[in-house]
């Protein structure tokens, strides 16, 4: 119970970090804000589409599973910076600048003075966890993730996710492997709303995945599993553009709604699990744009 509570806290504070110092999406015009937050869209797609399985076998009659999944996502250097293109005349010193995960915001000299881009969170990697419960009947499993919307200060955050999995190898009893297909949908919403409308920001992440997974159990103890997954992610962002440098007067002082697609398409997962009576420990590697390791502990029967 303490661990699941810890996971909730981690998710919550990870959400709060988005509004931390240095991360100032409100300093960017919409065309630059899209590039700034795109790696976040990719990350959320990567995170939510991780850890959804460690065994393709679904009980023929009834099954139950409670899992805590920890993930560690490695951020490639290409996801930490982008080339600014503010579309201003007379700009000099175009250098790459930080994305939301980067370390160094750029700056350049425009006709009307310096334009300063925000820094990022300065992250090397992202550890994050989630819990999930699943129940199955007749070879079909429904998985649920849920974190109620809670509010602290001006930030409120909540998430839900579902997964539907069906074992297809049950129709082919001679197959040496267990094979299943699984559909995943996950949503996360974070909103920063205070009495000052210029502080408004909202992030809503929508993630979809469809996978084919296979596993083989040895001696009822060791499971080797893997899968190929198609996935997509989208981040809806609403924010108030303040234009602190005063160089985009025609765009300033209004709320923008952006749709930011993540770079999530396919992933390959390989992993292993150890089945110890009602407990299962698993570890897998996910090869995708943001390589992710995942470890899980499950209580299942």
């Amino acid at each position: 119970m303490k661990k699941s509570f810890l996971i909730l806290i981690i998710i919550y504070f990870a959400c709060q970090n988005i509004f931390a110092q240095g991360v100032r999406i409100d300093n960017l015009p919409p065309q630059e804000a899209v590039k700034y937050v795109k790696p976040l869209s990719t990350y959320l797609g990567t995170f939510f589409n991780t850890g959804a399985y460690h065994n393709a076998d679904v009980p023929d009659l009834f099954g139950f599973k409670f899992s805590i999944v920890g993930t560690l996502t490695f951020l490639p250097e290409s996801e930490k910076s982008f080339a600014p293109n503010p579309g201003l005349e007379g700009s000099e010193n175009f250098e790459s600048t930080a994305t939301i995960f980067g370390t160094q915001g750029g700056y350049f000299l425009s006709n009307t003075g310096f334009v300063v881009y925000p820094s990022g969170l300065g992250l090397k990697n992202i550890p994050l966890g989630i819990y999930q419960v699943a129940g199955s009947l007749f070879g079909t499993e429904l998985m649920i993730r849920y974190f109620p919307t809670i509010k602290k200060d001006n930030v409120q955050a909540g998430l839900w996710g579902i997964g539907l999995k069906h074992e297809i190898s049950r129709y082919f009893p001679l197959l040496p492997l267990d094979i299943s297909v699984q559909l995943l949908l996950n949503r996360l919403k974070i909103e920063n709303k205070s009495s000052d409308p210029t502080d408004y920001a909202k992030f809503e992440s929508k993630n979809f995945a469809l996978n084919v997974q296979a596993s083989k159990t040895f001696a009822g103890l060791l499971i080797i599993y893997g899968g190929l997954q198609y996935e997509s992610s989208n981040l809806d962002v609403s924010y108030y553009f303040k234009d602190p440098d005063g160089v985009f007067p025609s765009l300033a002082d209004r709320i923008y709604d952006l749709k930011v697609d993540g770079d999530n398409t396919f992933r390959l997962t390989v992993g292993t699990a150890l089945q110890l009576s009602f407990f299962v420990l698993n570890f897998d590697a996910n090869i995708t744009k943001q390589t992710t390791l995942s470890a899980g502990m499950s209580f299942e029967f």
């Binding site: 920890g70 560690l72 370390t103 300063v116 820094s119 420990l281």
Partner: peptide, 28 residues
Amino acid sequence: LLAISTVLTLSLLLNSCDPFEEYFINLK
């Protein structure tokens, strides 16, 4: 097997404790 799994899980958690690196803000 149990020991290896525990070490892997602990290693993942411990290595994750410091995900942040130095960062820079431009002050205008």
